[in-house]
Simulated scan of single mutants.
Amino acid sequence: MSRIRAAYYDPEGSRYGIPTYWWRGAPPGYATRRQLRAAGLCPGGQPIAAQILWRGVGGTRTAYLYRLDLARPKRVATPAQLAAIGKALTARRTCRTCGTVRPYCIPRSLGECVDCAYPEEVAA
């Protein structure tokens, strides 16, 4: 085992407080939040079960691990929530001045679509 791996290997948690493994050294049954999300799961309120430590830019980096057997299915938006999100996104794309629905979000700094904010450039 290399010195770097040995420095971050603490499966009992005596040195770091929770079980600690090196990069790509975690045993099966653990996953990061991103890995859970890719599998359609979420931590579901469980505490951090272990961590991975590795040397990175700016110092030691950490990735927290959660147990797969305690993970729950990811929540799915209801049809009403999806409809509300669709209406909100359409409102962000609708110009207040001309009422046109644009293919981009209206800049808040202008308060209207680019064509209404700069009519002299559209005419040219």
Results as ranks from 00 to 15, higher is better:
G99W: 00
A77P: 03
G59L: 07
L65S: 05
V57Q: 15
V57R: 15
P73Q: 03
D69A: 09
A84D: 08
L68S: 06
P79I: 01
L65E: 03
G58V: 06
R67A: 13
G59T: 05
T100Q: 09
A91K: 10
R93C: 01
P79A: 10
R72P: 01
R72K: 15
A84P: 00
G59S: 09
T100G: 04
Q81G: 02
R72G: 02
L68R: 14
K87M: 05
G86C: 03
L82M: 12
C98R: 12
L68C: 12
T62D: 00
C95F: 03
P73S: 11
Q81V: 14
V101W: 00
T94E: 02
T78H: 02
C98S: 02
A88T: 05
K87A: 06
Y66F: 15
T97M: 04
R67Q: 11
A80T: 05
A71M: 05
L68D: 04
T90N: 03
G59C: 05
K74I: 15
G86Q: 14
A63F: 05
T78Y: 00
A63T: 09
T90C: 12
A88R: 12
V76F: 04
R67E: 08
A80H: 01
R102A: 07
I85N: 09
Y66Q: 00
R92D: 01
V76T: 13
P73Y: 04
R72F: 05
A80G: 06
V57G: 14
C95V: 01
Y66L: 02
Y64A: 04
A88Q: 11
T62N: 12
A88I: 00
V76M: 07
R92N: 06
G58N: 07
T62Q: 07
A77K: 14
P73H: 01
T90M: 12
R96N: 08
T100A: 09
R67M: 11
G58A: 05
T97C: 02
T100P: 00
T60E: 11
L65R: 02
R61H: 14
V57K: 15
Q81T: 15
A84H: 07
V76K: 10
P79C: 06
T94P: 00
L82I: 11
R61L: 14
V57M: 15
L68Q: 10
A63M: 12
R92E: 10
T94W: 01
L82T: 08
L65N: 09
V101M: 01
A71R: 10
L89N: 13
D69I: 13
Y66A: 05
A83S: 08
P79G: 02
R75W: 06
L65F: 02
L65A: 09
R93V: 02
V57P: 09
R102Q: 13
T60N: 00
R102N: 10
R93G: 00
T62P: 03
Y66T: 01
A63P: 01
L82V: 10
I85C: 06
Y64H: 13
P79H: 01
L70H: 13
T62G: 09
A84S: 10
G58I: 11
K87E: 07
R75M: 11
P73E: 08
D69N: 14
L70G: 06
L70Q: 14
Y66K: 00
A84W: 07
K87V: 09
R75G: 04
D69G: 09
G59Q: 06
P79T: 07
R61D: 08
